[in-house]
Design a protein around this nucleic acid. Sequence first.
DNA 1: CTGTTAGCGCTTTCAT
DNA 2: ATGAAAGCGCTAACAG
Lengths: 339, 339
Amino acid sequence: MDRARRPTMRDVAARAGVSFKTVSRVVNDEPGVSPQLAARVRSAVEALDYRPHPGARVLRRTDRRTATIALLLEDVANPFSAALARAVEDEAVPRGVVVFSASLDEDPGRERGFVREFGARHVDGLLLAPAGDDQSHLAAEVRAGTAVVCVDRPARNLDVDSVVSTNVLGARDGLRHLAAAGHRRVAFLGDRPSIDTARRRFEGYRDGLAAAGAPVDPRLVVHDLRTPADADGAVTALLSGPRPPTALFTAQNMVTVGAVRALRRMGLEHVVALVGFDDFPLADLLSPGVTVVAQDPAAIGRIAAGLLFSRIAGDAGPPRTRLVPTTLVRRGSGELPPP
Amino acid sequence: MDRARRPTMRDVAARAGVSFKTVSRVVNDEPGVSPQLAARVRSAVEALDYRPHPGARVLRRTDRRTATIALLLEDVANPFSAALARAVEDEAVPRGVVVFSASLDEDPGRERGFVREFGARHVDGLLLAPAGDDQSHLAAEVRAGTAVVCVDRPARNLDVDSVVSTNVLGARDGLRHLAAAGHRRVAFLGDRPSIDTARRRFEGYRDGLAAAGAPVDPRLVVHDLRTPADADGAVTALLSGPRPPTALFTAQNMVTVGAVRALRRMGLEHVVALVGFDDFPLADLLSPGVTVVAQDPAAIGRIAAGLLFSRIAGDAGPPRTRLVPTTLVRRGSGELPPP
DNA sequence: CTGTTAGCGCTTTCAT
DNA sequence: ATGAAAGCGCTAACAG
């Protein structure tokens, strides 16, 4: 691939018969260029298909903006991350900003690596769904002037904005809903408690049970479920056990899917109630439809991007945490009564 | 946000007591630096948390590489694009390359805009799922040395590599499968025929019917379906009509989902057979499971990224089109017999 | 209104 | 083995 030279301001200037500074003025819409010259310059720009070199520009400008941001999410292929990414893109593009994206896979090492990488590349801002439980490594970037906003989970050991779902409240609502239908033996199935959201949803689960006057039975609590297969296994075990739950609360997408699979295999999908945290495509088309505590990833992305751009624009107020409400979506599985 | 100055080579040089060219040598692993000096430089780099400025570097280097690529897909939020994006990321990251991504929304104007934008930003390569039916506007970028590989659909009026599914063959397989179960009245439901893949899948549909000795009934062919709601409406109309089809072939994801919804509402999901083109999450959990002609977006992404990087590395052979095979996945809906 | 000069942070070329 | 000078493409600060 021969990286042919693209035309520069000097080429345009030569063709238009002006100094290259005049070209700079025209290209940047600076005042003080006669219309005739400006027109000559513009037609030369057109003829040569000239485009300013953003790298050279950033080197010289005082604001040092690159008009790029980086999006560090759990996995761009999962629906939650993907919806969030799309919302961010929709905020960035109209502002002339382009978006790098990267997947962290819950790996703190990848988090550090990408933060370093994009810091070196001088992105204006970083939108991060924290993978590790310590974000202090970002302090250097923040000091160097990179705006940082966390999404989905708050940062730890770092004072920045974050935008997260009402995890405790949402989970409590889910449990209240099950309790209202008469359930008292509700299993909790969740991801690793080292993950902030998993912990909070568990907290909401306990609160919800307590509010209903039901005890927390530790034999009905399973953590560390990472894949649908894990969840499938856990549900199978629980329901084959001595005193099985009458309802399941699954604290994450993948876990919900695994639970549905297990219920289906055991023929219990119309018997054991199920409420999942986080919505997923086609949840309404299963039978029964899966009742969920839905998050709003698009709203999270939109709000976080807005916050990020106002920080980039100079807003230096104290860091805030914005909570995005969840919604209970009744579809059938969460309305099954206990036997 | 005060864009504080990051340390430069001069700062490192001053701290290490060497000329800044020596720092450059150490940072770039160039030979000809005494181990003692190199060590001093490295500790200064560490102390100041110095990172080379990629923008400044690209300005001076002869190869002019930015170690960035751009990924222009239909919509980063749809599962096909998202899986493809993830596969590309996995090829790029180990090579030290970062990825811009953008959604085209089937809008040729957006395609042109983003191509221009990323061309100006001097990405090394462009991975494009064409939105418009004319990619000649990319010729200028290709001439300027940007590598281009198309995915999902081939480029038109532009001679570059592309990586696509076996659309005709896959659709034909789907129809052969339905015909083998005895269906002769199979409806086609597809997206706008201006989209290359929609056209090819329709071609496979006709081929498949012809191979089975069944006629193509134009009353059973519906194009221009863009949303699940469109598809739902079309299926409802078809099945309420005088001589309804006994099976449906849905040529796209969204269309398949809309069709499932319609069948469900009419209570016909176990009566009318259905084969969809392109797999989707949870297709196996519906009842009946949805039989699909599955694409392999991860393979498409992996192969396309490999091709792109070999082009960036200098491969100047003639453009090739790589076909990625589809797989028929039997799940129940496609195995229903005609009444 | 237009042009000249300097220099961003870095690599290249050439000297020592 | 080390360094000084030049200059990538651009914008800032200052002339004219």
